[in-house]
Amino acid sequence: EETGVRVELAEEDDGEKIAIKLWLRIEDIKKLKGKYKDNEAIEFSFDLERDVPEDVAQEMVESGYVCEGDHKTMAKAIKDRVSLIKRK
């Protein structure tokens, strides 16, 4: 499903790190509610043992990086990427 958002690794995952750096990349602004630039990327750290995707997305909303209306879309994108990383 195309959401307009993609999360990718910002650094090589060696399988050892607990906290990883990720990029939340805006790919299609028409599919989102907030005002973003095409190909805008937000770099953030995610602790694989402690962080919760919904909470991280909420922090982005509170910091003004993400529109409240896009919270669920961002949280799902983060959750999907993190579950792929954890499965390795």
Rank of each mutant, 00 (worst) to 15 (best):
T3A: 07
G4C: 04
G4T: 06
G4V: 04
G4R: 03
V5Q: 12
V5K: 04
V5L: 08
R6H: 11
R6L: 07
V7Q: 01
V7S: 01
V7N: 04
V7W: 10
V7L: 09
E8T: 13
E8L: 05
E8N: 04
E8W: 04
L9W: 09
L9T: 06
L9P: 06
L9F: 11
L9S: 06
L9N: 04
A10W: 03
E11S: 05
E11W: 00
E11I: 01
E12N: 11
E12H: 13
E12R: 09
D13N: 09
D13P: 10
D13I: 08
D14H: 06
D14Q: 06
G15A: 08
E16D: 10
I18Y: 08
A19K: 15
A19R: 15
A19W: 08
A19C: 15
I20F: 04
I20K: 07
I20C: 11
I20N: 08
I20L: 13
I20W: 04
I20G: 08
K21C: 00
K21A: 03
K21Q: 06
L22M: 15
W23T: 15
W23V: 15
W23M: 15
L24T: 09
I26V: 10
I26K: 13
I26R: 12
D28R: 01
D28M: 00
I29E: 15
K30E: 13
K30L: 06
K31L: 07
L32V: 07
L32M: 11
G34Q: 05
G34F: 02
G34E: 00
G34P: 01
K35E: 13
Y36P: 03
Y36A: 06
Y36S: 05
Y36E: 05
K37D: 09
K37L: 05
K37F: 04
D38P: 15
N39Q: 10
E40L: 12
E40H: 14
E40M: 14
A41L: 13
A41Y: 13
A41R: 14
A41C: 15
I42V: 08
I42A: 03
E43R: 07
E43A: 11
F44V: 05
F44L: 07
F44A: 05
F44T: 04
F46V: 01
F46N: 02
D47Y: 01
D47G: 01
D47L: 03
D47V: 00
L48D: 03
L48Y: 02
E49D: 12
R50D: 07
R50E: 08
R50I: 04
D51C: 01
D51M: 03
D51W: 03
P53L: 01
P53D: 01
P53I: 01
E54I: 00
D55T: 12
D55E: 13
V56C: 04
V56W: 05
V56K: 12
V56Y: 05
V56G: 00
A57E: 01
A57P: 00
A57Q: 00
Q58C: 04
Q58V: 00
E59R: 14
E59A: 12
M60W: 08
M60K: 00
V61K: 02
E62L: 09
E62T: 11
E62G: 04
S63H: 11
S63V: 06
G64Q: 03
G64T: 00
Y65H: 11
Y65W: 11
Y65I: 15
V66M: 05
V66Y: 02
V66A: 03
C67G: 09
C67V: 06
C67P: 04
C67W: 09
C67M: 10
E68P: 13
E68K: 10
G69C: 14
D70Y: 05
D70F: 06
D70W: 02
H71V: 15
H71N: 05
H71W: 13
K72H: 12
T73V: 14
M74D: 00
M74Y: 05
A75P: 00
A75T: 10
A75K: 00
K76F: 04
K76R: 12
A77R: 03
I78P: 00
I78M: 06
K79S: 13
K79Y: 11
K79G: 11
K79W: 07
D80M: 00
D80T: 05
D80I: 00
D80V: 00
R81H: 09
V82L: 05
V82H: 01
V82N: 02
V82W: 03
V82R: 00
S83G: 11
S83I: 05
S83V: 06
L84R: 14
L84N: 10
I85M: 13
K86T: 09
K86P: 05
K86G: 03
K86W: 02
R87W: 06
R87C: 04
